[in-house]
Design a protein around this nucleic acid. Structure first.
Length: 952
RNA sequence: GCCCAGAUGGUGGAAUUGGUAGACACGAGGGACUUAAAAUCCCUUGGCCAGUGAUGGCCGUACGGGUUCGAUUCCCGUUCCGGGCACCA
C-alpha cells in the first residue's frame, strides 16, 4: 500500500473542518492549557518556511497536551495594522483594508496546508472594529487612571481629584511626569482647562510634550524600540529628536512591577536580562547643589554618592531647563552657539562620533560636602531624559567625566587608595576610600569616608544625605514612557475629541470609533496626519455621532484626534481577547478570564523582547489593576524560536570567457578556482537540488541565460552556497507550499523540527528532507502487508515489542516537555527500525504508535488510527504512559575505573542487588591484576550506571 | 566598552547534565535487485598508526591551564562567531 500523502492530507483537512475537531469551549471538568503563537503581520510576500517553525513547535505541544486530557486553547489571528500596507496604499492608492484582507486570505490558505490545530472560530484581527473597540476602551481606562505608588496599582483619576480638592499635592505619592506643588485652594480656584492640563501630569494615558524620535521620511514618530542605531527599524530612514505633543502611556509607573514579575515567569535568562537592561533600575541618591551666591540650585542624581569629595565640575544636559537659569550674560553667546550645534545633530551623529563637546555656563555650584565651588558646564553627554538632567562630575572615577576633564583641562581628584588615574579613570566599585576629605584641608562638614570600602561609603553617604536633608535616596529607571501617537492612517483611531483645547473621551457606549475614509493616505498639505484628509471626522456631542468636519462650531461639534495608535496597541491584549473573542459587552467575560487565566506557553521570536513583550506585560498589569485580567503576568512560559535563515546558491560566471564567446559561461563550484575572473551570481534556490543546478530550468529562468554554456564536474553543475537572510533579492526564499506539494505537510512538520533545536537559528537546507519523508514511508509500511492488507494482528505484544514501544513513550514524553523535538523524532526513527526488525504487527503496539506520532504528523496518524478501525479522531485518544518494568535491561553493565587509567566492564543480571555487585567487584578475578598493591577503600554504586572504585 | 548565549566529523546535530563522545539524519563510498533508471534494501564512513584478517594502539569536543579515578560537561585564562544594551551618571 503506497503512502499517498496528498490524498490523506486533503481527506483529514476536510474531516477536521467538518467535525470542528479543534473548536474548544470552556469546560470546568477539564484542566485548561493555553498555547499561543505571536500572531503574524500578514505581509504581501506570504509565508516562507521560517514562519511555521514556531507554529509547528507549539502545535506539537498543543496536540500533546490535548492527548493528555487538557482542554487546550490554541488560537490564531492577525496583527493587521501596520506600515507596509499603508506604504503600499500611498504608492498605489489601494486601500490598506483591501490589501490586508487579501494577504490574510493568502496566509490562511498557506497555514491550512500545514495541519495546525488552531481553533479558527476564535480568530482575531486587530483592524476590525469589533476588536479595536477594546483597544480604544483600554486606552480610555488608562486615561481615566493614575498610578498610586503606595498601593502599587492604578486607581481611578477621580480619587486623585478628590485628594487635590482637600490637600492639594500634600502627602501625594503617585507616578507623575514632573513633581508639581499646589494647595487645595489653588486647585479649587483653577478652571476646567487648567484642571485638564494638571491631570495630564498623572494620567496613565496622557498628552505630553516630549522629545520624540521623529522620522521625516516616514512622516511619523517612532517608539524607542522602533529605532535601531539612529535609523528607523522599518526602512532604515534617519530619525531626529523633536519636541512634540503626543499621547503617551505611563509605562514607567510599572517599572518595578515589570522588573519583579520577571522572577516569577519561565522565560529564558537572556530575554529576562534584556528586559532588565531595558528597565534599567539603578539605586542612587539625589543631592541638592546650591548655586554660588544664590539660594537657588538644582538636584543631581548619582549612584556613586561615595565620590562627593571628588567632584570637580557639574554638567547639565543641553535640553535642561536649568541652562537658561545658570548661563551668565558673558557666556550667553557661547552657550547659544553650542545649543544650536547640539540641536542640529541627529541621534545618529551622536552615536557615530562620540567626540567630547561642551561649553561653560559661567556659573558655579557649591558642593554641600566640601563647600567648594564647582564650575557648571553644559554638554550633550548628559541626557535630559534620565535622572534630573544634571550630574556631578567625578573624573577620577567615571570614564565619561574623565574624557571631559582631560579635554577641557579640569582637575581630577582620585578617591581610592592606590588607584592610578593618570591614563584613565578608575570606574570599578572596589577599593578603600581616601581623600574624603583630603588631608590638610579644613573639613567643611563633620563627615569622613576615609578608610571605608566603596560599598560602605555609598551607604554612609546616603545615610548622611537623608539625615541632613541634603537630598534623598532615589531609585531611577531607564524605562521611558511609551509614545502612543503615530501620524499614520492605518491604525486604531483615538476615541478622543478636543473640546476647546480640552481632550475629551468619546462616551464608552459610543465605541468603537471607526476609522474614517480618506482620499489620500499621505499627511495633509499643512502637515497634519493622514486623518486630516478625512471629511467626516468631527464629534457632535448632542447627537453623539461622527459628523462632517465642516460642521465644527466648537459649541456642540468638535474636531476628533488625528493621530492613530501604534502597532503595539492592538497586540498588547490580544491573548485576552482570544479567550472570549465575540463578546460585544466587554473585552472578555469574567468567566472566560477565570477559566483561561493566562498563556501557559507562548512561542515567538526574540525580536519583541523590548517591544511587544514589555508593552503586553504593562497592559496586562494595568488590566489586572482594573480587575479585568486575573493574572499579574500574561505569559507564564516563553519559548523563543530561532530564525530560519536562507541558504543561497550561487553560479559562477567566467567573465572574460563569457565576453569572448558572446554568451554566459558558468563553471561548476569545484572548478572555479581554475579561472581568475569569476563572478558569483545568486541563483533561485528552487531550481537547485542538493546544490546541483537544474540546467534546463536555469536557462528558462532568465532570457539572458537562455544560451548559457556550462563547465561541469562529474557531469553535474554544482552550485556554491552561503547562509544569508531569507529574502526575495537573494533568491533564497523557500515557500512552504512547495514542500507540502512535494513531500506533504507531515514531512514538512517533521523536517522543520528535525533540523535542530527550536530555539536555535539555522539555515534552511532541504538536503535532509528525504530522510524525514523516508521515515514516514517506513512508518506507514509498518501498518501494511506486502500485498496491501492491514498488517495489524490481535493478541498480546512480545517482550521485545513492549520494550521498543515503552522506550519510545518515555523518550518522546520527556522530549516534548523539554521542547526537544529533534531528539524525539530520532527516537521514532530508532523505534520504527526496531519494530520493523521485530516484524511487529501487534495491533496494541501499532495503536499506541499512531497516538505517539499524532502531535508531529497529525494526518498520517489520523489515517492509520482510522485504518486500525477507530471511528473517532486520534486527537481524542489518550496519550500512552510508559511502564518502567518493560525497560529493565537484561544485564546491567558496570564500568570500573582505577586511577583513571584502566577500565573494564562486568555484566550483572538484571535486578542484582548492590551488595552482590560490590562483593563481585571485590572478588573479581581481574581486580587484583589492575589494582596491584593498592587497596580498595570505597565502592560507589549507582544502580543502572557505574561503579566508582576509589583506591588508595 | 558592558551584559548574555555559543564553538563537537564533510554537513545538520546527539550525549541520561561528571561516566564507552559522535545517537538520528544528510552527504559520500561500496554492494544487492534491475536491460537501465527511479524506488527499495544491506555494508563502510572522526583522524592517524600497526595487522592478510578478526582486531589492537594513539590522538580527538575552538585554544592554553586547573579540579577529578574519570571532563564535551565544572573552574580560570585566551581566540573566534552570534544576540542585547550602549554616553543611563
Amino acid at each position: 500500500m503506497e503512502y499517498n500523502f496528498r490524498e490523506i492530507e486533503q481527506k483529514w483537512h476536510q474531516y477536521w473542518v467538518a467535525q470542528q475537531t479543534y473548536k474548544v469551549k470552556e469546560d470546568s471538568a477539564k484542566k485548561k492549557f493555553y498555547v499561543l503563537n505571536m500572531f503574524p503581520y500578514p505581509s504581501g510576500a506570504g509565508l516562507h518556511v521560517g514562519h511555521p517553525l514556531g507554529y509547528i513547535a507549539s502545535d506539537i505541544y498543543a496536540r500533546y497536551k490535548r492527548l493528555q486530557g487538557f482542554n487546550v486553547l490554541n488560537p490564531m489571528g492577525y496583527d493587521a495594522y501596520g506600515l507596509p500596507a499603508e506604504q503600499y496604499a500611498i504608492q498605489t492608492g489601494q486601500h490598506p483594508a483591501v490589501t490586508t484582507e487579501a494577504n490574510i486570505a493568502r496566509y490562511r490558505e498557506q497555514l491550512d496546508k500545514i495541519g495546525f490545530s488552531f481553533d479558527w472560530s476564535r480568530e482575531v484581527r486587530t483592524c476590525e472594529p469589533g476588536y479595536y473597540h477594546w483597544t480604544q476602551w483600554a486606552f480610555q481606562q488608562m486615561f481615566g487612571s493614575f498610578y498610586c505608588n503606595k498601593c502599587q496599582s492604578a486607581q481611578p483619576i477621580e480619587k486623585l481629584v478628590e485628594h487635590f480638592e482637600h490637600e492639594g499635592t500634600a502627602n501625594l505619592d503617585v507616578a507623575q511626569s514632573e513633581e508639581l506643588s499646589f494647595t487645595a485652594n489653588e486647585w479649587n480656584s483653577w478652571d476646567e482647562k487648567k484642571h485638564s492640563d494638571v491631570l495630564m501630569n498623572y494620567r496613565i494615558a496622557y498628552l505630553g510634550e516630549t522629545m520624540v524620535n521623529w522620522c521625516p521620511a516616514l512622516g511619523t514618530v517612532l517608539a524607542n524600540d522602533e529605532v535601531v542605531d539612529g535609523v528607523s527599524e522599518r526602512g532604515g530612514y534617519p530619525v531626529e529628536q523633536k519636541k512634540m505633543r503626543q499621547w503617551c502611556l505611563r509605562v514607567s509607573a510599572y517599572a518595578q512591577r515589570l522588573l519583579d514579575g520577571l522572577d516569577t515567569i519561565d522565560w529564558t535568562d537572556s530575554i529576562k536580562e534584556t528586559q532588565r537592561n531595558w528597565i534599567g533600575r539603578s539605586e542612587g541618591a539625589e543631592i541638592f547643589f546650591r548655586l554660588k551666591e544664590s539660594d537657588e540650585g538644582f538636584t543631581i542624581f548619582t549612584t556613586r554618592a561615595d565620590t562627593m569629595f571628588g567632584v570637580t565640575f557639574m554638567v547639565l544636559a543641553p535640553e535642561s531647563e536649568l541652562v537658561q537659569k545658570v548661563t551668565t550674560p558673558e557666556q550667553k553667546a557661547e552657550v547659544e552657539a553650542y545649543l544650536a550645534y547640539v540641536k542640529k545633530r541627529t541621534e545618529r551623529d551622536r552615536i557615530s562620533d562620540k567626540k567630547v563637546t561642551g561649553v561653560f555656563s559661567g556659573s558655579y555650584a557649591i558642593n554641600p560636602f566640601t563647600g567648594e565651588s564647582n564650575p557648571i558646564w553644559i554638554s550633550e553627554y548628559v541626557l535630559a531624559g534620565y535622572g534630573t538632567g544634571a550630574i556631578m562630575a567625578v573624573p577620577a572615577h567615571d570614564s565619561r567625566d574623565y574624557a571631559f576633564a582631560k579635554h577641557f583641562g579640569l582637575p581630577i581628584v582620585p578617591l581610592v587608595e592606590g588607584c592610578d588615574v593618570s591614563e584613565e579613570s578608575f570606574d570599578a566599585k572596589e577599593g578603600i576610600v581616601c581623600n574624603s576629605p583630603r588631608a590638610g584641608v579644613k573639613p567643611y562638614i563633620d563627615f569622613s569616608l576615609n578608610g571605608l570600602t566603596i560599598k560602605e561609603a555609598i551607604a554612609a553617604t546616603k545615610q548622611y544625605v537623608k539625615e541632613h536633608h541634603l537630598g534623598r535616596v532615589k531609585v531611577n529607571y531607564r524605562l521611558r514612557d511609551a509614545i502612543f501617537s503615530r501620524q499614520r492612517y492605518w491604525g486604531e483611531p483615538f476615541p478622543v475629541y478636543y473640546k476647546n483645547g480640552i481632550p475629551t473621551m468619546i462616551p464608552e457606549e459610543c465605541l468603537p470609533l471607526q476609522l474614517p475614509e480618506v482620499d489620500k493616505f499621505l499627511p495633509t498639505e499643512t502637515g497634519e496626519p493622514p486623518l486630516g484628509n478625512a471629511k467626516k471626522w468631527a464629534w457632535n456631542e448632542a447627537t453623539r455621532t461622527v459628523v462632517n468636519c465642516s460642521e465644527i462650531d466648537n459649541q456642540t461639534v468638535f474636531p476628533i484626534e488625528l493621530n492613530t495608535m501604534p502597532g503595539f496597541a492592538g497586540s498588547s491584549a490580544y491573548y485576552l481577547r482570544y479567550m472570549d473573542p465575540h463578546n460585544d459587552k466587554a473585552l472578555l467575560s469574567k468567566e472566560a478570564d477565570a477559566y483561561w487565566q493566562n498563556v501557559d506557553l507562548y512561542v515567538g521570536g526574540t525580536e519583541h523582547a523590548t517591544g511587544h513583550l514589555i508593552y503586553s506585560r504593562f497592559w496586562n498589569k494595568f488590566l489586572k489593576d482594573l480587575g479585568v485580567s486575573v493574572c499579574e503576568e500574561p505569559f507564564k512560559k516563553l519559548v523563543n524560536q530561532g530564525m530560519i535563515q536562507g541558504r543561497s546558491n550561487f553560479v559562477y560566471r567566467i567573465n572574460d570567457l563569457s565576453h569572448e564567446k558572446g554568451h554566459p559561461v558558468f563553471v561548476s563550484f569545484g572548478l572555479k578556482d581554475n579561472y581568475s575572473d569569476v563572478t558569483p551570481i545568486h541563483v533561485d534556490v528552487n531550481i537547485v537540488s542538493a546544490d546541483v543546478l537544474n540546467v534546463e530550468a536555469f536557462k528558462a529562468w532568465r532570457p539572458e541565460y537562455a544560451d548559457s554554456e556550462f563547465i561541469l564536474e562529474d557531469g553535474k553543475y554544482v552550485c556554491g552556497w552561503a547562509v544569508e537572510k531569507m529574502s526575495k533579492s537573494m533568491f533564497n526564499v523557500v515557500n512552504p507550499d512547495l514542500i507540502v506539494e512535494r513531500f506533504g505537510a507531515d514531512t514538512l512538520r517533521l523536517y522543520e523540527m528535525f533540523l535542530g533545536p527550536v530555539e536555535q537559528s539555522k539555515p534552511w537546507d532541504t538536503n535532509g528532507i528525504d530522510g524525514c519523508h523516508r521515515f514516514l514511508k517506513k512508518f506507514w509500511n509498518l501498518y501494511w502487508t506486502k500485498d496491501g492488507q492491514i498488517s495489524a494482528t490481535e493478541g498480546e505484544p512480545t517482550k521485545e515489542e513492549l520494550k521498543a514501544l515503552h522506550k519510545l513513550i518515555k523518550k518522546v514524553t520527556a522530549d516534548i516537555e523539554e521542547f526537544s523535538y529533534n531528539t524525539s523524532i530520532a527516537a521514532f526513527m530508532i523505534a520504527v527500525n526496531e519494530l520493523q526488525t521485530l516484524k511487529c504487527t501487534n495491533k496494541q503496539v501499532l495503536e499506541q504508535l499512531a497516538i505517539l506520532i499524532a502531535p508531529f504528523a497529525p494526518h498520517i496518524a489520523e489515517e492509520l488510527w482510522a485504518v486500525l478501525g477507530h471511528s473517532t479522531s486520534v486527537c481524542d485518544a489518550q496519550w500512552p504512559s510508559f511502564n518502567e518494568k518493560y525497560l529493565v535491561e537484561d544485564t546491567v553493565k558496570m564500568m570500573v575505573a582505577f586511577n583513571g587509567k584502566t577500565r573494564f566492564g562486568i555484566d550483572f543480571p538484571a535486578g542484582t542487588d548492590n551488595a552482590t555487585i560490590e562483593a563481585t567487584v571485590r572478588s573479581h578475578e581481574q581486580t587484583p591484576k589492575y589494582v596491584g598493591d593498592k587497596q580498595i577503600v570505597k565502592i560507589i554504586i549507582v544502580p543502572g550506571r557505574m561503579i566508582n572504585i576509589v583506591v588508595k
